[in-house]
Design a protein around this nucleic acid. Structure first.
Ligand code: DCP
Ligand code: MG
Length: 599
DNA sequence: ACGGTTTAAACC
DNA sequence: TGGTTTAAA
């Protein structure tokens, strides 16, 4: 890497992964009869065959679409198989799909430095360091390139795409031999992504598609271009041309009212057209002339040039948990008792999912929110009448009970609801009910938490003190020897890369001024690492007298393997990164961490 | 009466 | 802040 430009050195490899017809795949795994035949997942099949929320590619080819009624799908595709979403507490229950998604992203997280789940079936990965590392060893790169089946500098894996995509996304854009190009990073990334996809298929049975580029926006833009079960790379050299003919609505964030307004008020057709507006103009449009939301002119200004600086975070667990149900027409709820009946049901589901969040992610909710729609017609205030026909939505929140079981949640919710609901609800009826838990905080919990699980670790390091005296915080050594397997995963290549490092205070202030809200301010929530949790607890009993010395440093042999294996991969990484001195021995943990290679 | 259930974030 | 709206899967 001696002739590289600054831009090339800084380039990231960011991946967007998206499961193919996801709910359908989940159902097919449970019932292989459904493989290779047109099928769809519906919820509530009582009315017109239910509403389709996911469909197989066979069904899509026959003209079936999402949001169609099951009965309508049968008109265009008489042999379609319809599977109904499970029901619990008199509502659709998506648990099986959530869990299936989690299993996939657990695998992704194990195989990438950063994995940020953004929906039930999508995530971003940052594999910059892994790609750099692979690129630093050409023999290794070539070997894995062959195994992965990724084609470089040809169009053969674009058999299904049209001319436009061929030209834009591939052609001769990847030339790994030329190190002074961002394309080589993407070439290496493509190999790694192929390996990750193979690992996901191997461990879960699911196929996914992926987009590989230098930022979130671009990888997301192309992840679906060759679905299903294909990955697509977008070279920086193709971005300008691509955006110049990309319909504005097709870019993430412009698919709604914002896009519509830009299109008909500013006669903008393509993303690239936005470039003709100065940042100042965009700001004025955003604020002054009714172009609502996304105040961030900066964001638009950068997006239309293919720039997106938002980093990939490390998070698989959801930040909030909610559930709800709609009650149409005659079924709308018309009494407090009727509302309570369903709040009770929703509370059962919410309580279960909160329990799960606590066990799996150490998350505890601080806030409960209840919201509802009402068909209220007359709202008069100061002589003005508002909203004659439309549904009004309201929401109220309250503190989450310390023991968030179904009974307590329901109690808390009804308490805030009773205050205001009754007159309105009887008059017009409640057409939707939702409850949710948010402000999920990470906590340590004796009964279910990590402390108990890591018992062996605690006892082992409590027993030692003298024998561990050689353990200090150290800068990771520049590896003189070649690292393999798990070691390689944690090796930091030469060019520093810390995308989520938070700037110090003064720098932060400066950034805020110039940044203008376009990219996300992450107030990192002082996330307690396993390391911190453990040693914070220790330091209360054992007063530390040295600030640089790490007491009771973990070593691999002190970690209970059976416990470790059950930890979410995020936590596995925390444990691993707190282990400096001793790396695991060959056989066992190699299995969990190594690059998945086709057998 | 008929696209429902969910998550995340910006906005005020 | 809490409450509302937008955008997305
Ligand atoms: N309006 C929507 C969109 C999606 N989903 C659910 C069902 C999908 O299976 C899953 C993932 O959404 P995608 O948009 O990724 O669609 P699919 O995964 O089904 O198909 P694709 O192969 O296009 O990704 O989320 C939903 O319930 N309601
Ligand atoms: Mg999908």
């Amino acid at each position: 890497m001696s002739h590289t430009s600054k831009a090339t050195e800084r380039a990231r490899c960011v991946v967007h992964v998206d499961l193919d017809c996801f709910y359908v795949q989940v159902e097919r795994k449970m019932n292989p009869e459904l493989l290779k035949v047109p099928c769809a997942v519906v919820q509530y099949n009582k009315f017109q065959g239910g509403g389709i929320i996911a469909l197989s590619y066979e069904a899509k080819a026959r003209g079936v679409r999402r949001s169609m009624r099951g009965n309508d799908a049968r008109v265009v595709c008489p042999d379609i198989r319809l599977v109904t979403v499970p029901t619990a507490n008199e509502k659709a229950d998506l648990t099986r799909y959530r869990n299936a998604g989690s299993s996939v992203f657990e695998v992704c997280a194990r195989h990438s430095d950063l994995c940020e789940r953004t929906s039930i079936d999508e995530a971003y990965l940052d594999i910059t360091l892994q790609a750099r590392t692979l690129l630093s060893n050409m023999d290794e790169f070539k070997r894995r390139l062959r195994l992965s089946g990724v084609m470089i500098g040809t169009e053969s894996n674009l058999a299904d795409s049209d001319e436009f995509e061929k030209e834009i996304f591939w052609k001769d854009s990847l030339q790994p031999e030329n190190n002074d190009t961002q394309d080589s990073l993407l070439a290496a990334g493509s190999v790694i992504v192929a390996e990750i996809r193979a690992a996901v298929k191997d461990k879960t049975g699911y196929t996914l598609s992926a987009g590989i580029s230098h930022n979130k926006m671009l990888s997301k833009l192309v992840s679906g271009k060759n679905k299903p079960n294909k990955q697509t790379v977008l070279s920086s050299t193709k971005v300008e041309k691509l955006l110049s003919r990309l319909p504005l609505r097709d870019l993430n964030g412009f698919g709604g009212k914002l896009g519509d307004k830009l299109i008909d008020k500013c006669s903008i057709k393509y993303v690239g057209d936005l470039k003709k507006y100065s940042l100042m103009k965009l700001a004025k449009m955003a604020i002054g002339s009714e172009i609502v939301r996304i105040n961030s002119a900066t964001w638009m200004s950068q997006a239309c040039r293919g720039i997106c600086t938002e980093t990939v975070k490390s998070r698989i667990a959801a930040k909030s948990i909610s559930c709800g149900k709609t009650f149409r027409g005659p079924t709308r709820l018309r009494s407090i008792d009727n509302v309570k009946e369903y709040i009770d049901k929703l509370s059962i589901e919410l309580a279960e999912r909160l329990q799960n969040a606590k066990q799996k992610h150490r998350q505890v909710a601080k806030l409960i929110t209840v919201s509802y729609h009402t068909g209220s017609k007359t709202v008069k205030r100061k002589g003005q009448e508002i909203n004659l026909t439309g549904n009004i939505s309201k929401s109220r929140s309250c503190r989450c009970p310390a023991t968030p079981n179904a009974v307590n949640i329901s109690k808390a919710v009804m308490q805030v609801l009773e205050k205001e609901l009754d007159s309105e609800c009887i008059r017009a009826g409640v057409t939707c009910l939702y409850i949710g838990a948010s402000k999920l905080e990470n906590v340590r919990d004796e009964a279910t938490g990590i402390d108990t699980l890591l018992k062996k670790v605690v006892s082992a390091s409590t027993a030692t003190s003298e024998s561990d005296s050689h353990l200090y915080i150290q800068k990771p050594k520049q590896a003189a020897k070649r690292r393999t397997g798990i070691e390689q995963m944690f090796t930091r290549p030469l060019t520093p890369y810390e995308p989520n490092k938070k700037p110090n205070r003064s720098l932060q202030a400066a950034t805020r001024v110039s940044n203008d809200g376009g990219d996300i301010q992450q107030k990192e929530e002082t996330k307690p690492t396993i390391h911190n949790l453990f040693f914070r607890a220790k330091s209360k009993s054992t007063k530390s007298n040295s600030s640089i010395r790490i007491q009771n440093q973990l070593t691999w042999n002190q970690v209970d393997q059976t416990v470790f294996r059950e930890l979410p991969s995020e936590l596995q990484k925390e444990v691993m990164s707190s282990i400096r001195s001793e790396m695991p021995q060959q056989a066992t943990r190699r299995k969990r961490f190594k690059w998945s290679q086709k057998p």
